[in-house]
Each structure stands twice: as structure tokens, then as C-alpha cells.
Design a protein around this nucleic acid. Structure first.
Lengths: 251, 251
DNA sequence: CCGATGATTTGATTTGGGTCAAGGCATCGC
DNA sequence: GCGATGCCTTGACCCAAATCAAATCATCGG
């Protein structure tokens, strides 16, 4: 890969310096989705009443840690959050990467403590929602309730997808395609982007060794399906990658 | 294993012949849990108003199939339900086994069709809850809403557990211990029980080959951790099995 | 009882991905 | 600039579990 490729990047400072975070939040994916699910727009104010704006958090800062008392879920507003656990042998298991508009903490609702850690991979802004308050509000706003049900249901499906029995190539392709789609849904390029996480994180997410991640990426590059240089990725053979990922993503 | 061991078994006919299914349902785990989450007992009637009793289904009967229009979740009242998908190569991926008191269909809420199949492994009785009606009711009954949130949150955690990177022995031990605990919670023996599913089902659930399941069980038996004869199991070394399963179950 | 059928076990062999070890290559503080 | 640091890649080798093949066992219809 010659001539350094430039990638569109989400720049949190655009938001952070905006001065009116509430205005941003009113257009955030979570609020929008609630409205899409039938929540009256006039209720957005109620929802925003209980939002607490958090951030900016910097790379390595934790949103919460395993064992912390659970009292709130959070919508990522900018940046990437990694959720993970450390097992008895000190191995890290990455549970997910969370992009702007996505919710973290849904797996903590059952139980009074967070069952995992959440750490910022870059500069992160969050909307924090007290969960007791949110569920009280959800009783009054069916659109909000429905959106919460949907989000949790989706997370079950995503986790089961990850749990499936797939080859290293299939896992990697599915990861790249899914990441690409999530970026595209946020207005970024589906074919050129920057990975916000280290190879080790990808490995721990896909349950592979970092060496395997490296080798699979090299193989996909040699086969002309993608170009990758450090964390900059270009998906050249999007179709072929989608075919490879199809059984995992079920589409 | 000489002298045939007898195992306590859940006999659905006891319920099916009871004649008053509603009475049974009023004491089912789901309703009880809603009350435990703060739902007023006087609201049990409202909940039962929208229950539709299904069954008995027999071994091999499907509760729903992938692609069916989603309109209801169901609480297992008796028997065991297996949820699974078939991938492009015709391989079966088992998503879960569901015992009395457990809910199936929660991963279908996001989307208008069931994303998986659900089949009876033995004689099954179900309580069917229209999901639109249930969520409407949940708006009025915070205890019910809370219980639904918790159940879904728990399912996310369970799925992520299954997704972890564990050895065949750890997976098998975790499966047995979890199954044992779920039976114990329903008043059955924690150490002697009958597996309601085939080796192949266990294999497809744990993402192992059936031959591996067989070999792991043999090894655990040779090591004195359990005795198994066809589907009858006795957990002899419960402590040792729990130790083996601990990193998976995180306890 | 008997053959058929499907589930399970057992043995032999293969292999995908892990582990170990060694370099390469950006980035950063001094 | 330059060594230190951490991340990433590459190569050699190994192993847990898969695959392939075949035998055993339980169940069941007739």
C-alpha cells in the first residue's frame, strides 16, 4: 500500500467542543431509535432529563469495572468502548466493541454488579442513564420500553453468533463486515476505515491467538480481499468477504 | 454401573392430567419471578388472562421454526425445548436447552421473525404469551417489565459464557454443572439426573464433535468425577467438576 | 425373536490453530 | 537522534480436537 490512505474518522472534539451536548444527544441513535419505536417526540425531554453526560474519557480509562455496583447503562456518543472479562488464568475475553449509538451495560441488569469491564479504546463520550429511572420512564413510554427490549434481544442474537463454531477466516470476515456495516450505518465509508482496537483485542474477541489474526489478515490480503496497513483497512473484495462471512452473520 | 439407578424425573402427565392448567401456571416460575420482582399478586390474573396453554407437544414437534412470524414468547411448563439453527453447510448449532420455568423466543423480539428453531426433546407443555400484549401489560406492571429485562439480560450473559474460549473438558463440566443446578433449583437431585438430549445435541451445543463428547465423558468417568450410562448421569465428584467449570461459569 | 435403524463408542489419523521463539517496525520520552 | 517500549509479523513446531472408519449397543416394528 503506497500513498498513505486517509480515512474518515469520527472526531469527538467536534462534539465535545460543540458546547451544547444536549443538542447532540437529542439526535443520538438511542433517542432516535426510541422515537422510531413509537415514542412521542415530546417525550424526548423526559428521556434527556435523566441523561448524565460523561467524558471525555481517554484511551485506557474505564467506564466501569467488573464487580462495580450496577446502576446505569450508557450509550456511547463518541469513540469506541471495549467490554471484557479476565478469566482465572489471566486471559482476556473481549465481549464486544461498542460504537457511537450503541449501549453498554445491558448484560448487567440481571444482578446488582457489572459482570464485565468496559474501557475506552480512544476518546470516548457517553450518555449515562440511571437504570432504575430509565425503567420507570419506560413504563410510561412504550416506545422506550420497546427499544430496550429490542436492544437486549439483539444483544442475545449477537452473542449467540459469536458463540458459533466457525473457522478463523469466517470469524475474521464476519468481524470486518460487521464493523464495516456499523460504520456505514453511521455515515462512514464501508470500505475504508481505521480499526480502533489492537490485533490482540480482535484476537481475544474472536477467540483466536494474535498470531492467527495476523496470519488470517495476511492471507485475506494475499487473496486480494482487503488491504491492511497497521490499523488502516480497505475492503477490496467486499462481496467475497460477505460470502465468507455469510454463514456467521446469517444473511 | 450395575444395579439400575432410578432418577427423579419430571412427569408432565402429572400436570397434563391435572385438569386445571391455569392453576399450575399460577405457580409457574415465570409468574412467581414477576411477583418476586415486585409485581402485585393481584396482577397475576391480568398476566394469566393473556396466557395461552400449548401442548402436550411430543418429541420432535416444533414450537416454532426459523422464519416463522414472531408474535409470542413462551414459558416452558414441562419438558425440555431445544433451540437451534441449521447453517449453510447443514450443520446444526444448538443455542440452548430450556427447562420448565425458562423462556424461549427472547432473541426474536428484535425482528419480526424467529431467528431459530425450537423443538421438543420430550413431552412439552408451554405457556404462550402474545408479545405485543405482554409488553403492553409490562408498561402497567413494573414487576413484569423488570422480570423481562432481567431474563433478557441473563440470556445475554449466558450466550457470552457459551462464546468463551474453553477446553472441551471445561465446556462439558460447565454444561453438567449448570444443568445440575437448574434441576436442583426445580427441586430435583443435583447429582443424579437424566439427560433429556442426545450426545449429538450436547456436541452441537458445546461446539464439539459427538466423538469428543463421548471421549470427554469417558475420561471424566475414568477420573471418577461422574458415572454415566446412556443418558443417566451421576455426578460423583461434584466439587471437582465445579472447579473445572468455575472459569466458564465465573464463580 | 429378528433384522433394521439410529445412537454411541472406540480406534487411527489428520489438521487448524495454538504456542514458542525471534525479529521487524512504528512511536515516544529523553 | 536513539534507545526503550509495545505492537505486530513470521517461522518452526506441537497438540487438542476434528475427521474418517468401523464396531457395539439399545430400541422397535413386525
Amino acid at each position: 500500500m503506497t500513498g498513505v490512505v486517509t480515512f474518515p474518522r469520527f472526531d469527538p472534539s467536534v462534539v465535545a467542543d460543540d458546547g451544547d451536548l444536549r443538542r447532540f444527544c437529542s439526535t443520538c441513535a438511542f433517542s432516535q431509535a426510541c422515537v422510531a419505536e413509537g415514542m412521542d417526540k415530546s417525550s424526548l425531554g423526559d428521556l434527556h432529563m435523566l441523561v448524565e453526560h460523561i467524558g471525555p474519557l481517554h484511551e485506557g480509562d474505564h467506564v466501569f469495572r467488573e464487580g462495580d455496583r450496577f446502576d446505569a447503562i450508557a450509550a456511547v456518543r463518541a469513540g469506541t468502548v471495549k467490554t471484557y472479562i479476565i478469566d482465572d488464568d489471566g486471559r482476556e475475553h473481549v465481549l464486544g466493541f461498542h460504537l457511537p449509538g450503541e449501549i453498554i451495560g445491558l448484560n448487567a441488569i440481571d444482578g446488582d454488579r457489572y459482570p464485565c469491564n468496559a474501557v475506552a479504546l480512544d476518546t470516548v463520550m457517553l450518555c449515562r442513564f440511571s437504570f432504575p429511572k430509565l425503567s420507570t420512564l419506560a413504563s410510561r413510554l412504550p416506545g422506550l420500553q420497546k427499544q430496550l427490549f429490542k436492544l437486549m434481544s439483539r444483544d442475545i442474537g449477537k452473542a449467540l453468533q459469536l458463540a458459533g463454531d466457525w473457522s478463523a477466516d469466517q470469524r475474521m470476515a464476519a468481524f470486518l463486515i460487521e464493523f464495516s456495516r456499523r460504520l456505514a450505518a453511521r455515515g462512514f465509508s464501508a470500505t475504508r476505515f481505521r480499526l480502533t482496537m489492537a490485533r490482540t483485542d480482535i484476537a481475544n474477541y474472536l477467540r483466536l491467538a494474535p498470531e492467527t489474526v495476523s496470519r488470517v489478515l495476511k492471507r485475506l490480503q494475499d487473496d486480494g480481499l482487503l488491504r491492511i496497513e497497521r490499523r488502516e483497512v480497505e475492503l477490496v473484495g467486499l462481496k467475497a468477504l460477505e460470502t465468507l462471512a455469510a454463514p456467521v452473520l446469517r444473511d
